[in-house]
Nucleic acid binder design. Structure first.
Lengths: 347, 347
DNA sequence: GTCATGTACGAAAGCGCTTTCATGGCGCCA
DNA sequence: TGGCGCCATGAAAGCGCTTTCGTACATGAC
């Protein structure tokens, strides 16, 4: 396991009782702040607890008090994607609360971290369900989750044998690229993001499909405005004829926007820029983008989990009750691209 | 308690075993996907589970498997404040993960919801610690939390007897208002937000202190761009001489910005606008604002919790080890106000 | 000094599950 | 046909805590 350095087994109330020379009932009373304990005794117990670095076992406690067995689902989401974070987790949280399910949130930092978290969840039976956002998972683990009856759903990432909600990111990449070209672009460039995210890789794929593999591209290693700006600067300086930029995320696009302005070029006029997601505030910035329904991601995950948890037994019977879905995306034309087709939504 | 309608006590594996005519060990094996069960038996057990709507008790399970006793802290944060949400919970989550503490997130919808959640946490010993964001709590409950040894910290909201991290929102309100006046404003208006948030009320208070109680004001009932826009429209139409707007949140200010433009007035020129928080992307929008260090809010909460949990025993001894702090705020002048004092930060 | 009253505390019985260990039935080889 | 081993299964022992119940002792009234 991946536990703290010194695996000294936690002391129990028996250890405390022995050390303090009292019975376990008394230790328990001290633990729960009961009045009916002599001061001297209480102090002795507290000293013992301190010396042994005692910390009560929550599971045992709950078992004993008979606390309600409220289900708990773990949401694993990548740390890098700020845009996702709020838009998705707010409705997720709201939906789960409505279904009386607790949400344990894990901001996954990297692949190794993800594996650790999953291992723990399995080993400790820490949660009744798992929502995976925008990431890959080793199949064996998923299988194991299924075997011990922990339902899993994926969002923004397909996983065999698991209900998933996704959008067609390849198509989204195509649409964005075509839009730029229809708007008159002759030389389009790509700013892409960390390869961990399948969505980014797929948007990239759609882009290349339309614009050709030799189109200039730059990869931002983080999804930040600064990284987007830097990538755009590189691209712009290296390829002066560039007249359009597709960025695989709005945040990167905002950085690109700044870079373009810094180079005294006019966004939407002599150079087009498009992003992805349509995250909050992007509209007021005026960035054209491909919208994906991020709040629906969260809401769907909450609904699906509630369903799966409710009929946990059918799940055991291999009768999945939640279907995978592919949500439509939408081109949103604002001021950083030229609107050519009358069909595109103008905002 | 606040449990599901029909409080039929959950069936246990004994009930299942009896119904299926097997021993509890077999039920357990089925539950854990063990191979060593005859198909017929497995099916019988599954049927019984289904019929009785069995769902395993997590606490018992964890007790039995001896899962590690990783501490768990609950974060209660209000639903309305999108700006807060990401900026604060990302570093909180990161900090807690680093300390190997699980984060259970509750998006609090209203006062009643908050009370319910707190009651449950106390009754079920669901968490080892609690972080309260931007909200009020009945004192008795806080006291009770202390008695059973659950540490509490507050962020963006002071609470007697609890370490808290706050900013001086009254002073922030004063600073913003003075800045507008120094920039030449003769007639300043206020757009404030839901009264649940103490921070809003305090910024309002600072505003009134400087500008006088009879200054025009409008209250947005939600913290959304649209609500801010509407409030600004009302104000602008009702008071044509208004030449500055203080909005208690950036989001409201963005709405106000749109309203101002819609009325063909020039932000930063014939009408100044200032917001609060300096949330992500606000800089690229160019809004002047009072920055509060939101990521420090989350980081502090994580650090404090880790400390408090580590020395849970001193806590019992009433030796608090975490001190309350008041963080400095900062005026950030951008394009929607006039920069008069050379001291203000220009971005 | 006796008896009622109270108070501090320990023994022990669970809470619902996992897991080890023992058992009985069965197929298989000699 | 006897003996062997294997497999499915049940009995029972915990996991660490809370809580009831009863005991021992101290206190007060008479």
């Amino acid at each position: 396991m991946y536990e703290s350095a010194f695996m000294a087994p936690n002391p129990t109330i028996y250890d405390i009782a022995k050390r303090a020379g009292v019975g376990i009932a008394t230790v328990s009373r001290v633990l729960n702040g009961s009045e009916r304990v002599a001061d001297a005794t209480r102090e002795a117990v507290q000293r013992a607890m301190q010396e042994l670095d005692f910390r009560p076992n929550r599971a045992a406690r709950r078992l004993a008090v008979g606390g309600v067995n409220r289900p708990r689902v773990a949401a694993l989401m990548p740390f890098f994607s700020a845009s996702f974070y709020y838009a998705v987790s707010a409705p997720l949280s709201a939906g789960l609360i409505a279904a009386d399910i607790d949400l344990v949130l894990y901001n996954i930092q990297d692949r190794e971290h993800k594996n650790r978290v999953l291992d723990r969840i399995v080993a400790e039976r820490a949660c009744e369900g798992i929502v995976l956002f925008s990431m890959g998972v080793r199949d064996e683990r998923i299988a194991e989750l299924g075997r011990i009856g922990i339902p899993v759903v994926c969002v923004d990432y397909p996983q065999i044998g698991v209900p998933a909600l996704t959008v067609d990111n390849i198509e989204a990449g195509r649409i964005a690229t075509r839009h730029l070209i229809k708007g008159g672009a002759r030389h389009v460039g790509l700013i892409t993001g960390p390869t961990v995210a399948l969505a980014f890789r797929q948007r990239e794929e759609g882009f290349i499909e339309i614009s050709g593999a030799k189109s200039p591209q730059e990869r931002a290693e983080t999804v930040t405005i600064e990284a987007g700006r830097q990538a755009a600067i590189n691209l712009l300086d290296q390829f002066p004829t560039l007249d359009a930029l597709m960025c695989v995320s709005d945040i990167l696009a905002v950085g690109a926007l700044q870079a373009v302005r810094a180079r005294n070029r006019i966004p939407g006029d002599d150079i087009q820029i498009i992003g992805f997601d349509d995250q909050p505030l992007i509209d007021v910035i005026g960035l054209s983008t491909i919208r994906q329904p991020m709040d629906e991601f969260g809401a769907w995950a909450a609904r699906s989990m509630a369903t799966l948890l409710k009929r946990g037994k059918e799940q055991i019977n291999n009768t999945p009750t939640v279907e995978s879905q592919v949500l439509p995306i939408e081109l949103v034309v604002r001021s950083t691209t030229r609107d050519t087709s009358g069909s595109a939504k103008k905002r």
